[in-house]
Every structure is written in C-alpha cells, then in structure tokens.
C-alpha cells in the first residue's frame, strides 16, 4: 500500500496512451468505452467499501451523458473540457441532492431506493420529446482546445482524453482512500455505532461518498456519450446499472486498479462472447458472473491479492 502502487498505475496509463497509435482501431475503441465505464465502476468501488451497492448508478451515468448531449444540441459550446465540467457538475449536484435521501439507507433499502430514483429518470427520458424520447439523439463531436481532429485521429485523441480523465480520477481516489475520511468507509460498514461514538457522522461520510461516486459516473457517462456519439434512455435503465455492478463484482472491488482492469476485461469478454455466441452472449456473461461469485468470492483481483495479503507480523 505504498505510493508505489500509484506510480505503477500512472505508468500503466502512460504506457496505454503511448501504444495506442499502434493498436488496431477496434481495440482502441473498445478500450475507450471500457475506461469511460471504468469511472462509474470506480465510484461503485468507493460505495462497495462502505457496504453499499446501488442498483441505480446509471442515473448519474445518464445525467452525465445527457448533459453533454443537450449541450451539443441546444448550445454552441463544443469544447470538450467545458462539456465534461458541465457533466461532472450536474451529476455531482444530482448526487448531492439525491444523497440527502440515499445516505439515510443501507443494504437492500439503499439498493432499491437507488433503483427507484434511476427508473424515475428513465420514465422521464422515455416520455419527453425534447429529451429525444425513446430514440435519444445524436451527440456531435467535441473540439479539443479549438481543434477538431478528423479520421483516425479523432478516436485516438478521445482515447487520450479518456485516459487523462481516468488517471486523474484514479490518482484523486487513491489519495482519498489514504485520507481519514476515505479510510473510514470500511469501519462504517463494520460498525456505524462505534464510528458515531468516536464523533463521526456516518451519514455525512456516506453522503460524501455518494457525491464522489455520482460525479465519477457522470464523467463516465459524458465520455461514453462522446465515444458512441449517441445517447438514449437505456443509459439510465436498470440493466445498465446491473452491468456496472456486474463489473464491480467481477473485478473484486478491492482497489482502484480493479475498476480499470475489471472494466477492460468485461468489455473484452463481451466482445469475445459476441463473436463466439452472437445473439446469446449474455449466457456467457451470466456464466462468468456466476462462476466468479461461486469460486472467486473476492473477484479476479483476489487472485493477485491473496499472494500479497499475509503481511509479516512483526
């Protein structure tokens, strides 16, 4: 748990950015979506540590995605950083507001309330013409500091942007886990009473975690919307939320790195399954999830963790 792991992580992102031009387009495009979604999963990892599993995290994902989409549709703003900032701010705000409700609940009630809130958004999106109704709408390509890259460069630049967002988020979240507030998530899961009697407001702590997770999901949604150049209400549907929880379990929710490795692995699995079993790839995914839970309760990350775990007890 030394800062060494942060350095390794940052180097890995740099390496990914450096080799990207040499990689086939399908892989870069897959990794772009995978890492955009990894930000949502990173948020779920934060909540998982506190013992919370939202079945409606797609709410913030969709808020982020729709913010970008609406900006390109109804305003002249095309600058990618302005779009991302707007998406982060809006999803963070929604996370803050819904947090007043959600922070009071735990376990299945938390999961269900989160699901209900996301389905409310789905209900609104599906029925509102100005928001594109069931079809959603197209998202224009953004500009990067005034430049609008074309052709193969467009994907590459976007991939670099996603990597930049991911490395910054990973760094900040790692630092957060090293702070007292970040480290208290696990104690909060174990005994809220003890924390309260140490002078900590568990609800405020959880509220903070909810806002962080919502903001990350919003940025992830915004990047995903830019990557696929389209938004639709399915981004807020429960199956999208379920997919994110799926990846969290698959990765093992143990660390920051798990979110990124897990998400990449998931997209790869999905594309392999899609090639091998077109039409019935979900059978493959379901089987993988089932086997992971049955035989690797700590997720894929635990394969590596187990070797490292027994620290010398001096």
């Amino acid at each position: 748990m030394a800062p060494r792991s942060i350095v390794i992580g940052m180097l890995a992102f740099l390496l990914a950015a450096a080799v990207a031009p040499a990689l086939p387009t399908w892989l870069v495009s897959l990794a772009t979506v995978a890492f955009a979604n990894a930000l949502v999963v990173l948020g779920l990892v934060i909540l998982w540590r506190a013992g919370l599993v939202p079945f409606g995290q797609a709410l913030y994902y969709a808020v982020g995605a729709y913010s970008v989409a609406l900006i390109t549709r109804y305003s002249g703003v095309r600058d990618v950083l302005a779009m991302l900032a707007a998406a982060a701010a809006l999803s963070g705000l929604v996370g803050y507001l819904t947090g007043f409700l959600l922070a009071r609940y735990r376990e299945i009630f938390f999961s269900m309330l989160s699901l209900a809130l996301s389905m409310i958004l789905y209900g609104v999106l599906v029925k509102t013409e100005t928001l594109g109704s069931t079809d959603g709408f197209h998202v224009d390509s953004p500009t990067y500091f005034g430049a609008a890259p074309q052709g193969g460069m467009r994907l590459l630049v976007l991939f670099w942007l996603v990597l930049a967002c991911c490395s910054l988020s990973a760094l900040l979240v790692s630092l957060y886990f090293r702070s007292v507030a970040g480290a208290l998530a696990i104690p909060a899961r174990d005994s809220e009473i003890r924390l309260e009697f140490l002078g900590v407001s568990v609800n405020r702590l959880i509220h903070l975690n909810l806002v962080i997770a919502a903001t990350l999901a919003g940025i992830g949604g915004a990047l995903a919307a830019i990557a696929v150049e389209h938004v639709d209400p399915d981004m807020s549907y429960w199956t999208t939320s379920g997919g994110f929880v799926f990846v969290t379990i698959l990765a093992g929710a143990g660390s920051v790195a798990a979110a990124f490795v897990g998400s990449l692995l998931f997209e790869l699995l999905k594309s392999i399954a899609y090639d091998v079993l077109p039409g019935t790839w979900q059978i493959f995914l379901g089987a993988v999830l089932l086997l992971t839970i049955l035989f690797l309760p700590g997720g894929i990350g635990s394969l590596f963790m187990r070797r490292r775990r027994p620290e010398p007890a001096s």
């Binding site: 507030a181 480290a183 208290l184 696990i186 104690p187 174990d190 005994s191 003890r194 407001s201 405020r204």
Partner: peptide
C-alpha cells in the same frame, strides 16, 4: 463495537486518526 474486518491495530488507528482529524469531514479529508 469494533470493526470486524480490520486488524486490532487498524481498529486502534481508526480511533486515533479520528481523534487527530478533529474538525469534522473537511479535516478528515
């Protein structure tokens, strides 16, 4: 009321870290 998934030392660290970060959530951050 102790933190079951942590070691004894980590339990104690949680308590002392909270005591050190007096001043609520901003200080804890």
């Amino acid at each position: 009321q102790i933190f079951q998934s942590l070691s004894v030392f980590e339990n104690m660290c949680a308590a002392t870290a909270i005591a050190h970060a007096a001043g609520g959530l901003p200080a804890q951050l």
